[in-house]
Design a protein around this nucleic acid. Structure first.
Lengths: 292, 292
DNA sequence: TCGCTACTATCTTGTTAATAGATAGCCTAA
DNA sequence: TTAGGCTATCTATTAACAAGATAGTAGCGA
């Protein structure tokens, strides 16, 4: 059974004529006859009344209903790729918690305005987890810290963050080794790249990684820091955005530790759906504006 | 885009290998490559990651979802005609009110027991209306009074009814012309064949058709007869079934007027869906049992 | 680094199916 | 009865397809 045959069947049912159906689908009447006949032989049922007015039989009518479902799905699938201007379908984005909270909202807003028909899904997690999702094809693209070593992936430097030390009391210089040793460190769950920076920071101060508490959400973490539970390391933009909600204070870190780049990573552009391609466009625009 | 190609795409996505997909669909690996490639060219997108593990790209995954919808519809359509033993789909029956009430219930029950997956739809109306529905393809088959003059239709004598005169008082002989003239006659709406019999009856008694009230439902009509509003003419089986609910009485009519045959009419058997074919079987069985 | 293995891409050939045009047959309506 | 419109059939050409053989490539282990 071919889609072409079904399209002809539907056309015959609608026009009431083999010739008109042929004209509508830019072919000749003899081909319509052949296709319908082949369908009838394949199913062992007469689909069209030929005597008198041409119209579908009960069996033909039943098949037309299924044919319409198939053709609708087909046309939708084609428009998913060939649809001009307006992308549709689904876009699955993976991003770190901080990126989602601080950087994505304006970009997603712009994207949704441009492509209202795309269903956006966001999964948050630490870099290692996101890379895994991307490799498994469970997301279409990710925002992660650092470029993917893996070849055959499209990478774009999206955001540059400055990490700061976050504590519950005002700081003018780095806390002493003693203070660091007796304090806890709060970080996202295993795999988060920020956590590595914490360990780097501690090492630079000649302190071994002590107790590190793991959190799943930014709010919980900042709340605990404000409560004096310990320190954490976060992008200054993220902290600024939450500073008024929590009583927290920051300290700038040495550039080598503070600088962290967030990359947009996706498979090769040839594999992109129009929805993803359009998102990459939106992102590029946003990045250019941010960094002139 | 061909269904065959989509089936291969789904197989590749599921098996993770061109060769395995080929084996599953009983073809060779080179054909899988060709079909996938053709799909990719047609849509202008890479659908399958070939490097390393073979797995669908974002675009491929999106297409697989549509492909599954199309293939499901296709397989359902095929099973509608080729499904062994169990018919499915829809069966639209047209029947007269009296037939629906008196004759169809046991047949529909038997049919539903045999074909539980068929969705049964019944439209009631007078013969003329039902014939129109059948000619327009709005029902799959009808039960009507008298054979269809139209050729190319399958006809089967289904039931034989004996019409009786129905009134509110006991009758031993035909009411006088005077009584008939002063009484109203109750009948189904225009086009019902029973109505013609009423006029035939009146003519045989030398009375012109007087007032005839039209009803849309059997219950309303019998209720009015019981209330002494007038006479009507109905199959004796129908009256028997309702006699205990209404205080009504009957009188046998001359054979020439009383006998009325109900025929099962449908288009040619070649055009039947399995659901309809199975219904015709059920009906034949029921008729044979009724009339040995 | 070097093969070994398993996989996909490409090429070739024989076969099959699809297309468009011409024509014959049929039904309907005047 | 006849003319007009419609579908079925036939045919030659062209395109598509399937299967096998072969070449190329990535990944794995020694």
């Amino acid at each position: 059974m071919q889609l072409k045959s079904l399209r002809l069947l539907v056309a015959v049912a609608e026009t009431g004529s083999f010739g008109a159906a042929a004209k509508r689908l830019h072919t000749v009447q003899s081909n319509v006859t052949t296709h319908i006949k082949k369908l009838e032989e394949e199913l062992g049922v007469q689909l069209i009344h030929r005597a008198g007015r041409v119209r579908p039989t009960s069996a033909g009518l039943a098949l037309v209903e299924y044919a319409e479902r198939m053709l609708t799905a087909h046309d939708e699938a084609v428009s998913l790729f060939k649809g001009q201007e307006k992308a549709c379908g689904r876009l699955r984005i993976g991003a770190m918690e901080t990126t989602t909270a601080l950087r994505l909202p304006p970009i997603l807003a712009a994207y949704h305005a441009a492509q209202p028909d795309v269903d956006i899904q966001i999964k948050t997690g630490p870099t290692a987890e996101l890379v895994e999702l991307l490799l498994n094809g469970q997301v279409d693209c990710v925002f992660v810290a650092g470029q993917l070593e893996h070849g055959r992936y499209h990478s774009l430097k999206a955001f540059s963050e400055q990490l700061v030390l976050v504590g519950s009391t005002p700081m003018t210089k780095m806390p002493s080794s003693q203070a660091l040793l007796t304090s806890a460190f709060l970080a996202f769950r295993q795999g988060c790249s920020y956590r590595q920076r914490i360990e780097l920071l501690l090492a630079s101060q000649g302190v071994n990684a002590g107790r590190i508490f793991e959190f799943g959400s930014l709010d919980a973490m900042l709340g605990c820091v404000a409560a004096g539970m310990g320190y954490t390391v976060l992008p200054c933009g993220t902290v600024d955005a939450h500073q008024h909600r929590f009583g927290i204070h920051t300290l700038e870190l040495p550039t080598s530790i503070a600088n962290i780049d967030t990359y947009f990573v996706a498979p090769e552009p040839e594999t992109w759906t129009p929805a993803l391609a359009s998102f990459a466009d939106t992102l590029r625009d946003a990045v250019v504006v941010d960094e002139p």
